[in-house]
Design a binder for these strands. Structure first.
Lengths: 231, 231
DNA sequence: TATCATTAGAATGTATACAATAATACAAGA
DNA sequence: TCTTGTATTATTGTATACATTCTAATGATA
């Protein structure tokens, strides 16, 4: 099954459908498309040089991801995700990441645990060097690895989805040294609790980590708002 | 947007893709297909009298739902959901339904609240008459309505998905009078807390309601196991 | 006999053709 | 002028044809 997953991911990147899917998702999340924009199959197909078939399949996938709304016999429209949606996702994640960390105490492998510690170590290095892209990348890896380590297909799947959704918000979140350092410190606490198999502590730390990141997100928003005022 | 959703659901039931999707999901969840069964596009198409196109789209949708695994250039395989998956879903739900009930305190409309009470009332009626199909149906309605009432598109969506997944387990869960009565009593507690806008209580009751239903599920499993032994 | 290359078959991936549906524009009548 | 019906057009829904990829069987060779 794991081998399947790998084949899947690999080929998804090279199949036309996979490429169209990735492209559209990127454009929706990055804001290239506006809310309620109509996504016409032929137009997109022409833009990317493919036929309608892979475009259709990509649109259907995006619908299941909640990024596109398909009205039968009418068209596909960008749903986008509102600020409220992002906020909701973070609150939901604060619960589920807690659960995830608790379950990881039971199911994590030694290799996974070592990888987590390595990620924390590397992140500390890059934040001091000011490589914020790397920090964001390592943050992604940390969480994805933790999802995998919880040993629950279901929980891992839903957390992965949400993690992807909130990508935009997270980038802002870690692009300032002080905030990034706090975040990495919280990661370290979580790993420590998991290593000691302290489920309650792991759950608590992971829960609070997301709650903190909500606060950091709000802080960043406020700063951005102030900047706009000063202009 | 709401109008769109309606159109969508309506047409999904009548489009070939929607029918194939519903049929396959039903067959997977009910156990007609075994884990790892290969789902060949042409075969399914012939069985249902449609071409490969709608079958392909349905399979892609099922993959996003996690019920099917597609290996590129190879085939689609039934993933199914294991007992462990069901267990995980219930634990996850226990947290999210709590959150849902809490949010409902802020966002529920008067009409929705009245509907919830009506459902509880009707369920009490039907459980005394022994109409367990009706009880299950009302249980479904209760939860779906609660999801809608929380006012969060995101939370509503994920809970709805899980609710659907765990359908099989729930049917067993409520098919005995004593268990059904307990469940309905818990529903009443939740509604009461929401009416009084007591977020903490609503969250607590909803959380415990799912935890209780896990226990009821285990009880039912144990009984079934005992029956098999006595045969 | 074991192993590897080749090839035939079958399945999916993609493109395209055709059907059904919905939106639009325009004209006729009140 | 407003409404309504109709025809046109554009778009999605479905079927089918073709391309590519994987699998497995066959046969040649060491």
């Amino acid at each position: 099954m794991e081998a399947y997953e790998n084949q899947k991911d690999a080929a998804d990147k090279y199949s036309l459908r996979g490429r169209v899917f990735a492209k559209l998702r990127e454009d929706i999340l990055s804001g290239t498309y506006q809310e309620m924009d109509e996504l016409k199959e032929v137009v997109i197909g022409q833009e990317l040089g493919v036929s309608r078939t892979p475009v259709r399949e990509a649109l259907r996938q995006l619908e299941l991801e909640g990024l596109v709304t398909i009205v039968p016999n009418k068209g596909a429209y960008v749903t986008g995700i509102s600020d409220q949606d992002i906020e909701d996702i973070f609150v939901i994640r604060s619960y589920l990441e807690g659960l995830c960390a608790a379950w990881a105490c039971r199911n994590i492998t030694k290799e996974q645990l070592d990888s987590l510690e390595e990620i924390v170590y590397l992140a500390n290095f890059h934040v001091e060097k000011g490589n914020f892209d790397q920090v964001v990348e390592l943050d992604n890896k940390f969480h994805e690895l933790l999802y995998e380590a919880c040993g629950s297909r279901i929980l891992s799947h839903v957390l992965s989805d949400y993690h992807h959704y909130a990508r935009r918000a997270r980038t802002v979140n870690l692009s300032e040294a002080a905030r990034a350092r706090h975040s990495i410190g919280e990661h370290a606490d979580i790993v420590k609790a998991i290593r000691e198999k302290d489920e309650a502590a792991a759950e608590q730390y992971a829960h609070e980590h997301i709650e903190e990141s909500i606060r950091r997100m709000h802080l960043a928003d406020d700063e951005a708002a102030r900047e706009r005022e000063n202009e």
